[in-house]
Amino acid sequence: MGRAFDWLDKKFHIKAPHKRFLKRRLPEGLSYFYCLGGAAFTSYVILFITGLLLSQYYIPSEMEAFESIVKIQREVHLGWLIRGVHKWSATLLIIFILCHTLRVFISRAYKSPKELNWIVGCLTLVLVFASGFTGYLLPWDQKAYWATTVGTSMAATMPVAGRHLMYLIRGGMDVSGATLIRFYSFHVLWLPVTMAALLWAHFHMIKRQGIKGGL
């Protein structure tokens, strides 16, 4: 690393503590199945970047959401591709996470002291599904509207607090512009930020506890 990096390192002091981490030996017997978590993270990063790009053109309002998607699809340079990549990464992310979970289960890597890391992973999985659910409404088309109407109506089946819960999720009696902005906020702020925090914890614990056994 050149002089510029050294200058930065004097301020942040990141090189020395990470040297041991970077040069650490890896346990034997790792196969490509151990890449599935990294594969999921790759898809997360792609989703993050394409999401940043889409947010430059998407308008989360009842009147303009659909039009802005049409614009992204037809007018914005490579907009159709960015949107496609966002959607396909979401599909791949789900597949990778499910396979990664299965790999961790098979190699029994959830045993003590890694219970908490397993739990953090499960919470991330739940948040990924929540992201898929909230993201599905954003195009504000026929499919999105009715799938969300059915999906959110499920909250109302709960005894006692059901209807109140549905009202809270929709921001009103029906799926409307209020629901759209609510889901948009969850999809681009709450969920990605929470997921980033969970992933930091996930990776930090792997670093401390090792991939297989302790390091």
């Binding site: 998607i69 959607k87 898929g132 195009p139 088309d141 026929q142 499919k143 799938a147």
Partner: peptide, 23 residues
């Protein structure tokens, strides 16, 4: 397999909702 444009929301046309594949 590019992502297609959906249809505009219509409250009169009959429509059976279909979720994303993972739901």
């Amino acid at each position: 397999y590019p992502k297609e444009l959906g249809r505009r929301i219509s409250f009169s046309a009959p429509f059976s909702p279909k979720p994303e594949w993972f739901f």
